[in-house]
């Protein structure tokens, strides 16, 4: 077992892990931050997406020991300081960008990374960027709308009543 230390959502944390322990298991099991999910075992689905030193990474593809000293951000740290939803989170709710919620943390983390890189992406850029995040519920339609809206662009409101 090895000791590992990092910053998660602004808080210093440390723990004992095996050499083979993945970052996602360190977050979920050691830290009980179960918002980050595991949906596959081939680094395809993106449900485990977190930010490591401001870069989106799939936490199933990073060894916990490789995150030594890193600054990790997870879905649990995405809300505003007062607990209200961040702009991206709020857009996902406003535009019904989630159904079962399982891919959602990864989607939100991917969206946050995209908007940091490209503040006003086109629809095609959003779709292309989400290549590494699979959703089985929404058909992506409302996820794309939510991200476009979160970037401050005008989108058609949800559902004609």
């Amino acid at each position: 077992m090895h000791k590992v230390s990092m910053t998660v959502n602004g808080r210093p944390v440390s723990g004992e892990v095996e050499g083979r322990t993945l970052l996602v298991d360190f977050l979920r099991v050691n830290l009980r931050l179960t918002g980050t999910h595991v949906g596959c075992d081939t680094s395809q689905c993106g449900a485990c997406t977190v930010h490591m030193d401001d870069q989106p990474v799939k936490a199933c593809s990073v060894l916990a020991l490789d995150a030594e000293g890193a600054d990790i951000a997870t879905i649990e740290g995405m809300a505003n300081a007062d607990g209200s939803l961040s702009t991206i989170q709020q857009a996902f709710q406003d535009y019904h960008g989630l159904q079962c919620g399982f891919c959602t943390p990864g989607m939100v983390m991917a969206a946050a990374a995209l908007l940091r890189e490209t503040p006003r992406p086109t629809e095609a850029e959003v779709r292309e960027y989400l290549d590494g995040n699979i959703c089985r519920c929404t058909g992506y339609h409302n996820i794309v709308k939510a991200i476009m809206a979160a970037s401050g662009q005008e989108v058609v409101p949800v559902a004609a009543e």
């Binding site: 179960t34 918002g35 879905i75 996902f92 919620g101 959602t104």
Partner: peptide, 12 residues
């Protein structure tokens, strides 16, 4: 239900 799913507090 979105609030818990969007903040990582869902319980799967």
């Amino acid at each position: 239900e979105d609030i818990r799913f969007l903040t990582g507090t869902g319980r799967y």
